[in-house]
Every structure is written in structure tokens, then in C-alpha cells.
Amino acid sequence: MHLLGRNLLDHKPVRIALTNFFGIGHSLAPRILARLQIHHTCKVSELTEPQITALSAYLSSPVSSTHPDPTPLAVPALPPRCQTLRRIELPQVQTAPKPIRRDVLDDLKIETDLKRSMLGDIQRLREIGTYRGRRHAAGLPVRGQSTHAAGRTAKKLNRLDRRFN
């Protein structure tokens, strides 16, 4: 199945196939599925049409995605079973609003967006003149590795226009 320019193989589980995308790995893929309420053992060939639409809608713009509705355990308007019992009205207690935990999935960046932001970060380091930016420009290891052994990988990847592979 083709999704946003990537070929997801039909026989693979969706959580594995999603790792085809640059920026989605083995920890994010199951979380995306949980958010879209797709079973984590679901295979690509077993995806239904609305699920595919939801997936492509989410991946094309994660920022504009919405949280799934929490599944209600019971309808709130359900009348009490025993009509003779009087409902006790509990006093309303003002509780502080729960701190909203930031979800990574809300502002997930994948593919070109992610690459662009990574390049922007490197460019920023270079412009303000940090050691890390300088190491990027020189094509040398950035995080204190020795240049004797790790230098070769760094020479391949570390540049101001960082190579991705």
C-alpha cells in the first residue's frame, strides 16, 4: 500500500511498516496506532478504509490532528436504576485543572519537516558560533568522540547541510 510516497508492505504489521517513515521509530509507531485506535497487531493489508484515511490524515499534518474521544464507560444521562432511591447531590468541589501533559504526537515532525528543522538547529549552532556548530562545519565528531575512529562516520554525515541516510 502506498501512503504519502512510502510503500508499506502488505504483509507487515502496521507498527513495523510505519517505521519506513523518517522520524517514526519503534517507540512512536505503536503510540500513533493507539491514538488512532488501531490494534497494534493489525497488518497493513487488514487496515480498513477509514483507518487508512485517519492514518494519512494524521501523518500529513500531525499538528492539526485531534485527540480521540475518550470512550465513555456509561452514558452520563442514564437514569439511576432504582427510581425510589433519591440521588444525593454532592457539593461541587472546585478542583484545580489537571496540568496538560504535552504529547509528542501533537507536534510530531516527520520526513522533510523533521529534516528541515534538524538542519535549522545545526545552522543555528553555527551562526551563534558554538563549538558544536564549528565541529559540524569541520565535519568532525560533535559530541566529544575521538577523531581517530569515529571520525570517518562524522566525515560522512556531519556537515552544515547534514546528510541523512
Binding site: G129, T130, Y131
Partner: peptide, 9 residues
């Protein structure tokens, strides 16, 4: 947020 030493090679 960076450190002073980062700017002095």
C-alpha cells in the same frame, strides 16, 4: 542556555 566555554575554542 548555552555555556560560556562553547564560544571560546
Amino acid at each position: 542556555g548555552h555555556k560560556l566555554g562553547e564560544f571560546s575554542a
